[in-house]
Design a binder for these strands. Structure first.
Lengths: 162, 162
DNA sequence: GCATTCATACTCGGATATACTCTGTCCGAGTTCTGCAGG
DNA sequence: CCTGCAGAACTCGGACAGAGTATATCCGAGTATGAATGC
């Protein structure tokens, strides 16, 4: 039950991209956060496939959000990287073994699966309640106004990684 | 973000043990559900370490619940097998990179981690709301009364696996 | 008949292989920008 | 001065290794049972 580390990277990248006015190369985003360039690129591909970001090829290319930051939720990003399948997978073991329940009696998911899925639904609902815009606003509140403006300026500048 | 398959096994085993009047060998529990004997034994060890079940050694030994079924929640079982660490691990990448936030400004978890942890809290709360006794009652409702009594009878009998 | 001893069979527990997924890297295909030549 | 073209540099995208974890298994340590034995 561990989440890919790339989720954290992707969320922070989305927050940074939300204030950029043009495409941002993946290498630039990686340098901003001090993470592996090639591995972050792999996760950004997942975001592209999910339709959260658009990739612009060629010189001056990069990634940019396809929708407004307020329309992208944490759930979208998590599911883009982790997949949409639930963490708990019911294998219907009640239908196995010597005292197996007959299949015709199993028209509904068993109680265990129901409870597990309800819990995951609560988890997804909580994630869907937070948008990238919310996180950006929160960052401005805690780290001071102008923080994201500085990030955007650095992203389009030619300053070296360090 | 996948959960160990052993979680499903362990929960069903707890439901079965809740109606047994003595220790049940792991091999018997495995045969009841048609799963690997040795691998289930490994998961039952985790339940033992977590204090959910007690192991009785020797002939006629086995596993039995240490507490009443109503006092054991799904969360207890899940955490016994998956660990108590959250799925999302914040690596504080905001403190990395050329525009890193200074450590003294990071006294509180960043917004991303807060949202992720809040979602996991909702998930844990939902799991903690369901007990083994609840699942046992639900099973009796759907599969008919006496189902668990039959399981308990089979567990202490000498009937072969199949 | 009863207590003691001993062998046995059965249990759990940890140490040991294998498969799969996550992590990290590399190189090729494609596109856009830029500089330059020509009109 | 404007247009068209060619080169180059930079981008993404998918294919390729290594590490760590989940899965599955095996064998040894320990204990309660039960029978056999002696009193």
């Amino acid at each position: 039950m561990k989440m890919t580390a790339g989720v954290e990277w992707a969320v922070h990248c989305c927050v940074a991209m939300s204030r950029a006015d043009g495409p941002v190369p993946s290498a630039r985003l990686a340098d901003l956060h001090g993470v592996s360039r090639t591995y972050l690129a792999k996760h950004l591909q997942s975001l592209t496939r999910a339709g959260i970001v658009r990739s612009v090829e060629g010189r001056d290319g990069g990634y940019q959000l396809t929708h407004a930051a307020a329309d992208v939720t944490l759930l979208d990003v998590v599911q883009a990287l982790e997949g949409r399948e639930p963490a708990f997978r019911c294998t219907e073991i009640r239908q196995c073994g010597p005292l197996a329940a007959p299949p015709e009696a199993c028209t509904r998911p068993c109680g265990v699966a129901q409870a597990m899925h309800a819990a995951e639904r609560a988890w997804r609902d909580a994630l869907a309640a937070t948008s990238i815009a919310d996180l950006a606003d929160g960052l401005e509140r805690t780290s001071g106004p102008g923080t994201l403006e500085g990030v955007a300026r650095w992203l389009r500048s030619d300053a070296p990684a360090r």
